[in-house]
């Protein structure tokens, strides 16, 4: 578009295009400002006050909330939980998604049906999953818990949901269960998109299947993986609903991650100033990932 001839005419087009572009983006900007920027700024402000929900009125206390975060023993525990929950959930769903993508990219009878079937968990509401999880792991009447007891993994009268590690494993498994279809589809598309000539060239060179997989398939999927990673990390680390409905953060805070900690500080101990500070920290940490991603993403290059 950069052209030196007929500057006056082009300028006109430029202005018009600029205006058209801005008009098209305007509704987005309005929504982003009113529904995201404004709440974020409110939160930022709250995080510097001692606001609480028991008494009205608050005062500015500088960085005290932030100082408190770093002296709060629970914060490091819950931050660690957030890390465990996010890493295992994300890696798990990417691995499962990728494995199933390899499966459905094969030519086989009933392949389309299988693909459709594998998509089902994506639309099962989190609340239904929570119900199922609590029911099948009920210490007295839960079928899976019963099997675990028979295998000796869980003591009699015990439930996997009452064990700190067990509860974390359960919520992670169910989170993977409901979120692998998205990576699966994306990987499947990416696999289909790999240039066939690359494979042919490799065959000519006498590479075996493993080598083809390692040196052609995987590198081709690097960008897809990175994008999925960033999307799923941001989504998982801020995800509240499933854990809240399955374990409520217990037992002994072993499945409490930062979003639940924020909720408990807002509506359990009513310290919304402090809760706001935690949410700012969580947002900032995720922002680091996003910025790292943006710097190397094609989507944001011109």
């Amino acid at each position: 578009m950069k052209n030196n001839r007929g500057i006056c005419f082009l300028d006109n087009i430029h202005t018009r295009r600029k205006l058209l572009g801005m008009t098209m983006v305007l509704p987005t900007v309005i929504i982003l400002v009113a529904l995201i920027l404004y709440p974020v700024i409110t939160n930022l402000y709250l995080s510097f006050t001692n606001s609480n929900l028991l008494k009205s009125g608050s005062s500015f206390i500088g960085f005290q909330n932030y100082a408190k975060i770093f002296s709060d023993k629970m914060f490091s525990k819950y931050a660690w939980n957030t890390l465990i929950w996010t890493v295992f959930s994300v890696v798990g769903q990417l691995v499962v998604g990728f494995a199933l993508a390899l499966l459905i990219s094969r030519q086989m009878r009933g392949g389309t049906f299988l693909r459709s079937f594998l998509l089902i968990p994506y639309v099962v509401p989190a609340v239904s999953i929570a119900l199922i999880a609590r029911w099948i792991l009920n210490s007295n009447y839960g079928i899976v818990n019963h099997w675990l007891q028979n295998m000796g993994l869980v003591a009699s009268g015990q439930s996997a949901l009452s064990l700190p590690v067990g509860a974390m494993i359960v919520v992670i498994i169910f989170n993977i269960w409901r979120s692998y279809p998205f990576p699966m589809l994306i990987y499947w598309a990416a696999l289909k998109g790999i240039d066939k000539e690359l494979y042919e060239a490799a065959n000519v060179d006498g590479a075996n299947k493993l080598q083809v997989f390692l040196y052609i398939t995987l590198p081709q999927l690097r960008n897809t993986t990175l994008t999925l990673l960033i999307l799923r990390i941001a989504w998982t680390a801020t995800y509240f609903d499933l854990i809240w409905m399955v374990t409520g953060g217990g037992p002994a805070g072993s499945t409490t991650q930062l979003p639940i900690m924020i909720y408990q500080n807002s509506f359990g101990t009513f310290q919304i100033g402090y809760a706001a500070a935690i949410s700012v920290i969580l947002g900032l940490i995720l922002m680091v990932f996003v910025i790292a991603y943006i710097r190397r993403s094609k989507n944001f290059a011109d």
């Binding site: 982003l32 409110t42 807002s266």
Partner: peptide
């Protein structure tokens, strides 16, 4: 950039405002 950044704001942070 900010539309992607908005994606990683914890929904719980948006709740009260």
């Amino acid at each position: 950039v900010s539309s992607l950044a908005a994606y990683c704001i914890p929904p719980i942070m948006l709740m009260v405002p």
